[in-house]
């Protein structure tokens, strides 16, 4: 070791690095990078996913996307979904976390229950909710006078939006809650006590003292929900299938249908998923920038 120059040492280090990374790198390149790259290649073709031949059409798919009303509608729907979902899921999760933390005796019990849905596949959970929306709620409305439940939870676009939000919140709030609880536990008690002594109400205490201290968790949770929200597929697919018509079609579902149904334009569909990727990238970058700046400010 002593005789080697810095240059040689660096070489050895890099060689070691490559050897240690090799297994991961190989599977990663084969099963992720290469498919992603060739996926992008198809975005430049007019391949219909079925024919043996196709032409390279350059960026015309991307030009066509600009005027594709259904695609932008699905983006709009996804945006709406993401905003509501991020808000609702985080508010619910934070409320649950605060409520649980304020009653330490019952913490374990409730935490266990609230996290449970997160363990179950959304395909399974979606079907269970389907039973509720198409059978149980109608039963309650018809036989027990809960008339306010008598809506078309799957069919009416407004209500099915609510249904989708309910189910996706059900599936994720537990996960977010666990993160918030951990952050809350990191807030030192004496800080809170000091605030109470100073005459702050619990409400003030939360917003002025606790909330700033759990901003890190907030960043993580928002990042996570944003990302999941933009790619939402399973929940909508099992509940409404994107319907009625295209009323609840998220981008991911729209892309899936473009690739596998109707005109089966696989090349065009991959062009769309490239656009989705870019949008997610931009939104995430902006969000990280904003929240991390805020975190520093505090």
């Amino acid at each position: 070791m002593y005789g080697t120059t810095a240059m040689q040492q660096k070489k050895i280090k890099n060689l070691q690095l490559i050897i240690f990374c090799a297994p991961a790198l190989i599977v990663y390149i084969i099963f992720k990078l290469y498919p992603a790259g060739s996926g992008f290649f198809y975005a430049l073709t007019n391949w219909n996913g079925l024919n043996k031949t196709y032409d390279i059409v350059g960026f015309s798919n991307f030009v066509e996307i600009l005027s594709d009303r259904y695609f932008w509608n699905s983006i709009l729907f996804t945006m709406k979904y993401v905003i509501v979902f991020v808000l609702v899921a985080n508010v619910v999760a934070l409320t649950l976390a605060v409520a649980i933390e304020s009653r330490p005796k019952a913490r374990g019990f409730f935490r266990t229950i609230f996290y449970m849905p997160n363990m179950i596949s959304m395909v399974i959970g979606g079907y269970m909710w389907m039973f509720i929306f198409t059978k149980a709620l109608y039963y309650l409305a018809d036989n027990h006078g809960f008339k306010w439940l008598d809506h078309s939870w799957i069919g009416d676009p407004n209500y099915s939006f609510i249904a989708i939000i309910i189910v996706s919140t059900w599936g994720t709030a537990g996960y977010l809650m666990i993160i918030y609880i951990a952050a809350l536990q990191g807030v030192p008690d004496n800080v809170k006590e000091a605030a109470v002594v100073d005459g702050a109400s619990p409400w003030q205490c939360f917003w002025r003292i606790t909330f700033p201290l759990i901003r890190h968790a907030l960043t993580i949770c928002i990042f996570w929900t944003l990302n999941a929200g933009f790619q939402v597929f399973d929940v909508i697919y099992t509940l409404t299938g994107g319907g009625p018509g295209r009323a609840t079609q998220s981008v991911a579902i729209h892309i899936y249908e473009e690739a596998f149904r109707g005109n089966i334009r696989y090349g065009y569909a991959t062009a769309k998923s490239t656009v989705l990727f870019v949008i997610v990238l931009i939104v995430t970058a902006i969000q990280l920038k904003i929240t991390s700046r805020k975190e520093q400010e505090w």
């Binding site: 099963f31 992603a36 996913g49 998923s273 989705l276």
Partner: peptide, 28 residues
């Protein structure tokens, strides 16, 4: 390892986390 290569590899591994599954499904 703190070299250019290591920084590159780390970025290479992480950048793909946002690629939607639908775009790699058929090639995969």
């Amino acid at each position: 390892t703190k070299t250019k290569l290591s920084r590159f590899l780390l970025k290479l591994f992480i950048f793909s986390m946002l690629i939607p599954f639908s775009s790699i499904m058929i090639p995969l």
